[in-house]
């Protein structure tokens, strides 16, 4: 996909996020919207996956360590063809395969249950180690939140992955700067994120999380990096492309009401129309 196609797909994925969270009347729109471009690139360009064969053995693995951003994962999987986009409105409802946090027994394409922060990155590290042990070629990707970096387990995993030189592992930090209780700089500042991962023997790349040229270049660089895992610090905007959600702590874990939903979808339609003019 070229950048314009990726942008259009990311726009569709954002619409799916807003639609799902609105229908659920609960969920986490802000951090889902901030990582939507990264998710789009992973599933439409970067990863070796097959929606028709979600469990194929040599697939690249993805673990959403910041599991509360399940709407981003679900909307991406739906748009990629793992299940109908229409399913998104069943999010969080009794009987839905779309649980509040990712659950692999329920949803095709989900590689690991997550939601309890810090655990996903360790599981991804274990998958990467596994590939090394048996000389398998698949790669492993995991997306973390910047607030999640306060979990000690993230650094246990980072120390291990760096020590084991797991160059088949890519850790992406969705660095939107906001967590549920406020800006990360006010809650328990995880900065400097890049220097921390460097100290744990990662190759670190800092990018604009909404620029597909930079995203593409970063994943290419990660692929070419040998002997150490890569951390992509993706500087993002929480609530990206929904006017009233952008850079707002309030939209970490709240669903839009009907009126707000109309505005949000109009914002996203506008972004989509602008892309069509290109």
């Amino acid at each position: 996909m070229d950048n314009l196609e990726l942008q259009k797909m990311a726009n569709e994925i954002r619409k799916g996020i807003v639609t799902a969270v609105h229908a659920a009347k609960a969920g986490h729109p802000g951090g889902s919207l901030s990582c939507a471009d990264i998710m789009t690139y992973l599933y439409f360009e970067e990863m070796n996956i097959d929606p028709k064969d979600p469990k194929k053995e040599d697939r690249d693995r993805f673990v959403l360590s910041k599991g509360h951003c399940a709407p981003a994962l679900y909307s991406t999987l739906a748009n990629r063809g793992y299940f109908p986009v229409e399913d998104l409105v069943t999010l969080r409802k009794l009987g839905s395969h779309l649980q509040g946090h990712p659950c692999m027994a329920h949803t095709p394409g989900v590689d690991m249950n997550t939601g309890s922060l810090g655990q996903g990155v360790s599981v991804a590290t274990g998958m990467a180690l596994s590939a090394k042990l048996s000389n398998d070629s698949y790669r492993v990707y995991t997306v973390l939140g910047d607030g999640e970096l306060a979990e000690g387990q993230v650094w246990e995993a980072a120390m291990f992955a760096g020590f084991k030189k797991l160059d088949n592992l890519v850790v992406i930090v969705d660095n939107n700067g906001l967590q549920i209780d406020g800006p990360i700089t006010e809650v328990c500042d995880s900065n400097p994120i890049d220097e921390k991962f460097k100290a744990f023997n990662f190759h670190v790349i800092t990018i604009n999380a909404h620029d597909f040229d930079q995203i593409r270049a970063a994943f290419k660089e990660a692929r070419e990096t040998k002997g150490m895992p890569t951390c992509i610090v993706a500087k993002s905007i929480k609530g990206k492309d929904v006017s009233f959600m952008e850079n707002s702590v309030a939209w970490h874990g709240v669903a839009p009401n009907d009126e707000q939903y109309e505005i949000a979808m109009a914002d996203l339609e506008k972004v989509g129309e602008a892309l069509c003019q290109k």
Partner: peptide
Amino acid sequence: DIAVGLAL
């Protein structure tokens, strides 16, 4: 959790 990744 490394064990989980290995098992999966």
